[in-house]
Design a protein around this nucleic acid. Structure first.
Lengths: 136, 136
DNA sequence: GATATAACTCTCAAAAAGAGACCATCTCTA
DNA sequence: TAGAGATGGTCTCTTTTTGAGAGTTATATC
């Protein structure tokens, strides 16, 4: 069957499927999306979608990420197969991170939301201001 | 200018722009994406994209969300303008949540990643298993 | 009168994230 | 030749976020 035409309802069912079995680990969407929607993941994917970067470069590119979170997020992305990590035997060894083929494919589908966010920032801010003025 | 053709590089710059100003609140992408990529947001959006639901229905639909997080996530989505909340003056008052026009538009762009996740679960799992066997 | 339903809020414990010190190794500069 | 800086991390401690679950107000049902 073609999963592209599955309804939201079906997706919810998939999300729920595993809850009934007692855990969350087997739900396909949640399983995958969990790591992509991580606080720093989309940002790092955006960077790596453009070109490979070294650890220190990423750190400078994203100044407000802690080294701990950079290490951890990169490892998670590597573990899921989106990112390739290559160590070069230079004097202080350097490490380069790049998107894998699958990483690029995934990013293609992620891009849409990022674009939307970029283009609709003002509307969201306006909605937020309206809410704060009314409901609070 | 058409933001749809902006490169990843430019996006990163946008992400970074506000860091230089000392806070994160003004970065458009991060600002918007933050709430969409919340742990429970995409799941609730998936549900509401299909049809309106009442509070208790959502709770039963997503059994592993705590009431605290359901309330909070819904309020955040409402605040950002994706979700409409309507109170009906029944005896114990009931509340219905539905997607706004903007919510539907946003969901259209979010859908792509969710589809990708649904269709590539096996690949991700395989990558993960490979990583765990090798690197650990 | 006890119990259930509705949509929440509140408190406390557990998990995750951030800040920043520390590490080994090598090169470059003073 | 001593010190500083760059490499890519780890470790510990504190703060923030999340989850679990009891409590709330008001009505209806048995």
């Amino acid at each position: 069957m073609d999963a592209r035409i599955s309804s939201a309802r079906q997706k919810i069912e998939i999300y729920r499927a595993d809850v009934r079995k007692g855990g969350l680990a087997n739900c396909p969407i949640r399983n995958v999306v969990q790591n992509i929607f991580d606080k720093w993941s989309s940002l790092l994917l955006m960077a790596l979608a453009e070109q490979p970067y070294r650890f220190g470069e990423l750190r400078r590119l994203v100044p407000d990420i802690s080294q701990r979170m950079l290490t951890q997020t990169l490892r998670d992305l590597q573990r899921d197969g989106y990112v390739h990590r290559e160590v070069f035997p230079t004097k202080p060894p350097s490490v380069e991170y790049s998107l894998t083929e699958m990483g690029h494919q995934m990013y293609d589908s992620l891009q849409h939301v990022l674009h939307w966010a970029e283009n609709n920032d003002a509307r969201v801010r306006a909605a937020r201001a309206r809410f704060d003025a009314t409901e609070r």
